[in-house]
Structures are given as C-alpha cells and as structure tokens.
Design a protein around this nucleic acid. Sequence first.
RNA 1: GGUGGGUUGGCCGAGAGGCGAGGCAACGGACUGCAAAUCCGUGUACACGGGUUCAAAUCCCGUACCCACCUCCA
Length: 478
Amino acid sequence: MTIRLYDTATREVRDFVPLEAGKASLYVCGLTVQSEPHVGHVRSAVNFDVLQRWLRFRGHDVTFIRNITDIDDKILAKSAEQGRPWYNLAYAMKIELDKAYAALNVAPPTYEPAATGHIPEMIVLIEELIARGHAYPAADASGDVYFDVRSWPSYGELTHQGIDDMEPAADADPRGKRDPRDFALWKGRKESEPTTASWPSPWGAGRPGWHIECSAMAGKYLGPAFDIHGGGVDLRFPHHENEQAQSRAAGGAFASYWMHNAWITTAGEKMSKSLGNTLSIPAVLQRVRGVELRFYMVAAHYRSHVEFSDQALDEAAEGYRRIESFLERAGVGRETSLVEEVAQQPSRDQIPDAFAAALDDDLGTPAAVAVLYDAVREGNRRLAAGDDVTDVAASVAAMLEVLGVHPHDPAWAASASSNDTEERLTAAVDVLVAGLLDERTQARADKDWARADAIRDRIKSAGIEVTDTPDGPTWTVS
RNA sequence: GGUGGGUUGGCCGAGAGGCGAGGCAACGGACUGCAAAUCCGUGUACACGGGUUCAAAUCCCGUACCCACCUCCA
C-alpha cells in the first residue's frame, strides 16, 4: 500500500515515492516568531505532525526539519514598538510557540533550525547564485543582493504563473532592482536598524532575506534533493516559488512534493488580519482541552478551508468525549499495558484497513475519523451485550494514537492546564460528592425516589452530572 | 489583469458518475424507578440555469456569490 499525496506543483494526487526507499525527508516552514501563536498557526503543525506519524507507521524513517524564522521586518518593527531587543521578542515568542505545540501534542521535529543560526550557509548559497549568474548585488549602495528572476526561465513553475502576468509590484522602493519582481537574498543594514540585527557579509553588514533562509536550512539538513516540502497555502507564492527558484538555480533538485494546508479563518477573515487575541492558543485552551482542539483540526481535511467557530469546536469536543468515554467504559485506563504498548507503537494489525486506506489517500483524516467512530459504536454495542471489547479498544486506541489524540498520551498530562491546586480541589469535591452519592444510593435502595432525585438535583445545581452505572454512580463536571 | 480554491441537510464536515461517510443537534424506540450514558431507527442535502449519460452532488457549458495568493501572513 502506498501513500498518495496531493502535490501542489503538479496539482494532482500522486503516489509518494521517496528518493530513498524506506526513508522520507520533510521540510516544513515553521513560524516567524513575532507574536503569540493562534489556532491558524498550529493547524500547519498539527497537519504535518499527522503526516509524519503516518509516514512512520508506513515504515519510513522520517527526517523532519521545521525551521523558525527569528529575524525579519516584523520582528524588528514590533520589538522597536515594544521597546525591547528583537532577539528577546523572538525568543519569548519562540517559547510561547513551543508551549502551543506541546499543548497540541505536536511532536518535536528531528531538528528545528533557526534562521539566525545559519547565516554562513546562506552567504555561501548567495555567492553560488551570483557565480552562476542568477543573483546580483544592488546597483545602488544599499548592500542588498537580489535574485534575478529573468535569469531563471522556469520562475513561476510552482504556482503556474508567468512573470509577465504577475501584478506589477506596488513596491515603491525598488532599491536598485533590475526587475521589480526580483527578490532580496540579502538586505543591507539600514541606519534605523539595530546593529545586533546585522551580520557581516561580502556585501557589507546586513541580514538575510526571508526566502534564502529556508533554502539554506533545507539544503544543510536534507541535502540538495529531498522528498516533501510543506507549509500554509499562503506560502506558495512568493516564498516557496522563490525557495525553489533559488535552490534549483544553485544546482539542487529541491523538493519532490509540495504540500500546502488551507487556512482556518474567522468571520471569513484570515486570522492574521483579525483583531484581538481571542484565538490565541492559550485563549482557546480556556474553552476546550488541547486534545479536543487537535481533534477538531484533524476531523477536517488539511486542504479544506475551516471557518473556526466556538460552536463547531464544542461539537467536535462533544464527539471526542464519546470516544473517550468508550475507552473508559472499556476499562482502558492509564495502567492498561495493552494501550500503553499501542501508544508506543501502533501496530499494523490494530489499524483497520479502511482507516489506513483513508490516510493513505492524501491524509484523509475525515474518513479516518469516520472509521474511528464506527469502531466506537461497535465497541459500545458489544459492551452493552456484555461481550469482550479488548480488540476493539486496542484498535480505537491505535487509531487515536496515529492521529495524535489518544487521551492517555503522556503529552497531555505534561502540558495540561490543571495544576496541583486543581487536582486537590478535584479530590476534595470527590469526597464531598461521594458522601452525597452514598446517601442517594441508600435512598434508591429504599426506593425513595423523591429523595434520590432531590440529592441528584442538589449535586446537579453545583454543575455536576451524576451517572448511574452497574458499578455504582459516577460524577463529572457538566 | 494573472493564479488557485470554494458554495453539500438545523449545524460541522467527507465524497467526486450508480450504492445516503461520519460527527453534533432533533425526534421516535429499547434499556433505566426516573434520568444520564449506550444501542436501534428517522433526513431523499449537494448555489442557480442548461447540457452529456441508461444514470450527475460528482463530467461539460454558462451564471451568481465567497475566499486566497500575486515580493517577506501557517
């Protein structure tokens, strides 16, 4: 069974054939760490995390590089506004990003290079491009170096655009460009910029352009040719087009497949434009747990645009809880070794064929989730009949693990918002409620239904739902 | 102007020529002292107008509306 992926470059779903059998190399553009991450940002991370998990499941040895851009115009502008050093802002936001990834159970990549750590590699690449006649230092004294798009005939191939069809750049400051579409590989330092934001180069002090960063880092860690390059749809142009042009102009084959995830928007607007931070990860995690947010994302296809809404999020969380409660009812606890094993390495025979087929088909997580629900229903049916559900529970657990939404994944505990105080409160409430439930059990034994219901109502008025099970009553916060 | 994507039942969200993905909600039934949970059942939805076909949500033509990208937004 082969994995099939939609390739933006060829605009079709095609078989994934890695450059080297049994391996998969993946480069994903991470974030520019300039503000708190919001749900839109993490969608990309969640998507490629699922891809990575599936590639591994399918037997590929995955090398996954996801960079962070820690120097750019916005970081400089924002840090100046906030009156703190740019590197402090970038570092602080990088920490926030790490927290968001952890909260969503996004596994760390093989390596996460930062742009500022790879200036020498970028300079070497720029020199190569100049030597090959595809780049030139600006004619003015700016110290900029540009990529010469006219020198690279296939420029525009990734996004299927002709240079002459492109809207003329509204760029008021061509700064010595030969063509307005030429883009900066190196940006000479401006008087207004802090000296800490510049590095020495053959063209004078300055900093790298955005696109060259990814070309240099992908080249360093994955080599001149690698399998998959990913990112958000907005990066197709100019960023990925430029990356490809640079890297190929420098002699590399670059990525074999291009994958782009669609947006999450609110009120029909992309989040980078919407105001406020109500959709920042910490804010959303006030409403639902990280695992529920991840499930919400995974339940939609990565190439589908998602209109974020609290209602849809709550519904997804509701659905997720049904899966979770099946595992509980099936007796799958944290201690169950079977599930622990599955969590470590979901084995092939525990994954239903339909689930695997769904993921093989361009990461069809919605269809995979449907298979998951089918298994849950089957499991509940058997539970009701008093039959053994070990195999179904293991199967459900394995599917959840592949999607990265297993409720007992230690990752959730590590980043859970619940703290010590909360745990002690829960324990305290448990003692109090247990006392009331004992009274109610007695009332029920006496068939004093009025009293039993009165006790239940009293508990309910405190926001606690009581459920009777064959093993006695249980409670949850409703 | 160029490029790409979209419009599916009350809501979310798959599918991409025949067989009604799935979830949430709702309603009926089973179970239950009653609930809850769970299970069973209930929906003829595919923007609009034409066309192709034995058969169209799916292909073709046209129309409307929406969104994204076109030099540093995941």
